[in-house]
Simulated scan of single mutants.
Amino acid sequence: MDSAPIPNVLTIAGSDPSGGAGLQADLKTFSALGTYATNVITAVIAQNTQGVVAVEPVTPAMIRTQLDNLLEDVEIEAVKIGMVASRDVAEAIAEALSRRRPRWVVLDPVMVAKSGDRLVDDEGLRAVRDILVPLADVITPNLPEAAALLNSDMPQSLETMKSAVAELGRLGSPNGLLKGGHLAFARCPDLLWTPSGERWLDAPRLSNRNLHGAGCALSSAIAAKLAHFSFSASARVKASPREMEAGIATAIVEAKTWLHQALAAGERLSVGHGMGPPHHFHAWW
Rank of each mutant, 00 (worst) to 15 (best):
D68L: 06
Q47V: 01
T11I: 08
K225R: 14
A94R: 07
T140L: 07
I81P: 00
E267G: 10
V40Y: 05
P102K: 04
D108W: 09
G213P: 10
G247Q: 11
G266D: 01
W193E: 00
L263K: 03
V237D: 11
S230A: 15
S115N: 11
D130E: 12
D16S: 00
L135D: 00
Y36K: 08
L125K: 03
M161K: 03
A265C: 09
T49V: 14
R87M: 15
A21L: 07
L206Q: 03
T257V: 11
S98I: 08
V44T: 11
A223V: 14
A32E: 01
A25C: 13
V58P: 10
V128H: 00
P278Y: 00
A54Q: 12
V165S: 02
A94Y: 05
P277N: 04
F229E: 04
Q50D: 13
V271S: 09
K28N: 01
S173H: 05
D117W: 09
Q156H: 13
E91V: 15
N151L: 12
A96F: 07
E159A: 14
E91A: 15
I63F: 11
S163T: 15
E72P: 06
P278L: 04
A246L: 15
A283G: 12
S173Q: 08
D202S: 10
G172L: 03
L168M: 12
S98D: 11
G266Y: 04
A224R: 00
L192P: 04
A94I: 01
P144W: 02
L211N: 14
A54V: 06
L132H: 01
P189K: 07
L10Y: 07
G274M: 09
